[in-house]
Design a protein around this nucleic acid. Sequence first.
DNA 1: AATGAATGAGGTTTCATTCAT
DNA 2: TATGAATGAAACCTCATTCAT
Lengths: 197, 197, 197, 197
Amino acid sequence: MTDKRREIVAAAAALMHSKGYENTKLADILEAAQIGKGQFYHYFSSKHELGLAVLNYRFESWNQRLMENILSSGKDPETKINEMLDWVIEQQRLNQAKCGCVFGNLAVEMSEHDEAFRRKLETVFEIWVSKLKPVLSEMILPVQADPEEINKMAQGIVAMIEGGILLMKSKQDLNVLVNITAQIKFLIRSFVQNQRH
Amino acid sequence: MTDKRREIVAAAAALMHSKGYENTKLADILEAAQIGKGQFYHYFSSKHELGLAVLNYRFESWNQRLMENILSSGKDPETKINEMLDWVIEQQRLNQAKCGCVFGNLAVEMSEHDEAFRRKLETVFEIWVSKLKPVLSEMILPVQADPEEINKMAQGIVAMIEGGILLMKSKQDLNVLVNITAQIKFLIRSFVQNQRH
Amino acid sequence: MTDKRREIVAAAAALMHSKGYENTKLADILEAAQIGKGQFYHYFSSKHELGLAVLNYRFESWNQRLMENILSSGKDPETKINEMLDWVIEQQRLNQAKCGCVFGNLAVEMSEHDEAFRRKLETVFEIWVSKLKPVLSEMILPVQADPEEINKMAQGIVAMIEGGILLMKSKQDLNVLVNITAQIKFLIRSFVQNQRH
Amino acid sequence: MTDKRREIVAAAAALMHSKGYENTKLADILEAAQIGKGQFYHYFSSKHELGLAVLNYRFESWNQRLMENILSSGKDPETKINEMLDWVIEQQRLNQAKCGCVFGNLAVEMSEHDEAFRRKLETVFEIWVSKLKPVLSEMILPVQADPEEINKMAQGIVAMIEGGILLMKSKQDLNVLVNITAQIKFLIRSFVQNQRH
DNA sequence: AATGAATGAGGTTTCATTCAT
DNA sequence: TATGAATGAAACCTCATTCAT
């Protein structure tokens, strides 16, 4: 991927995060990326392709920072969870609790009517869940985890994060999310206790 | 409100639920409501006004069915929670797990850039939280509830529902939501136990 | 003419004076006159008919006040001219030098493309000229007036008034008109002197 | 300014001269300029911007031909005045005495409700007055001109021209304007005589 | 690789007028 | 008389995409 293409994607990513896919107009992107129409269509065959590129671009960085650096680190599971939640809060703080989560936003906007977006978004959440599972398993050691229970709990955690971001966005108040991360920690503690008995 | 106006709102509500506010075009509404452009602008001064009318319309019915009939019924708190979660699942089943929650959808799409929508949506979630609080308080009786803890838990429940719907929508699979409602019940049980000790 | 019809015409007259014929919308008129659409079309067959009614309505009052009360009074010709110019200034002062002359405005807007308006407006200016002629004739007595010269001078005076109002409107400054009335007086004095030699 | 943009402005100028700003519809312009909607909005951000461009376009040519070539020529003042009046008549002859003066027309239509138009139009008339002043001063030489008197007379001349065009338009008869230019010459002669005594 | 002019369907809104009551 | 709902053509403007250079 050339630098210019990357620049365009980065500019579009910021816009689409805030305004959504449809409400981000090509003209906005061209202006933000400081390019002409011809150049855009040289790199992308359509706005739709760019949208998917944005999704992949955000996926890459999310995957690297959250899935790899945090959830796949060698640290103990509690630390991983804490770091994950701190990272989530930090991301929202960066845009003043206003934009929400790119993946959540696009899932809401695109899932029903755009299968390409939907599949990618589904994957994102699946990866998240699948990365959380070993962390949870590790937490309840020495008890052996029931894979089904672990899976549901991982899904519940992701749901609570996404829902927390959604609520936070509607109030434009980061504290909502902070409170909810506390609830998540409580949920996990309860789960661990419960599994151990 | 005349019948015709109500018809238009109802038709628009279905469309906006599925496609969002911006992606629902006036032409879609006119066709669905079987009216002409002029007639539309006889009842509404703008698409924006219609959007808010849709929000209010959905709020009314949600408020009646969920906030009043279910959460304010005379039944015991466990039943209220169960009925609430069943109702949520049922709503999603009605549109094949594809549309998501109108309020969540609009919160994601509109909150950042439209203050009128944001405020109404904020209110919706606040009401939900405030209606859940007495239910939770009743559950932990005879222990006296810590209002702050109750509030956070209520918020956590709403977040988990909204996040669960979001995840469900991205997978187009109702089971996701079903699983998450189970997690919610577990969370509540844990909360009750925890408050009692 | 019923009172209601008159009310409508009066309301429309104020609007059309300020905004012109085309830019005055039926909705503006209905609101200003506090009536419904049905009532409007009961009194008028079209906006065009109303426009002509407005023109006649303004013509009537102008004819009464300026043509009759002032230019056809028994006073000496200098007084008539002075009162006419004072009246013109006073009219413009009433709308803060912003609206201009209804007849001039409509002449500019309508003359080229609407023959009915054009003819009425032409008549207005012809009457004005014809009423000025005897005043000018009287002024140059005992010299007998050359009808052709008198006619041209009368036309020149009307032109200077209308042009003065136009300039005044473009500057939104009543002083422009005041200055020009002084020029008109000078022009008339010069004319009288010239005719007497 | 590209050629296409200029073409659009020229086409719109002819239309707006005849029909006014508001009554010139985008569709008229597109047809006259033989372009599509998209192309129009490529060159102009709005009809309003085009309107101002039309005004500037007409100003440029008027400024060049009348203000520079005629009123700023090295010829004697009487010739300048005569050439100016001949030019004015000639312009009106070109459109069969039907359209009037673009500046006067737009002043009447736009001054009250559009400040951008008003300011430009005000400037046009101010320039005209300011260019006439030295001509008048030169005429009364060797007497030194009273600047205030000169200014008022210049304004009076412009008013009489604009008013003459207005009257001419309402009668659709060029002779009206011809007569009035004769009055203007008489007014100037009287002014010169008066200043010299 | 790059520009930006051109396209044209479709977006929301306006409006004088007609019609059912 | 009077209401205001209904009509639909036409208003201004937007936008993703294509095309000529």
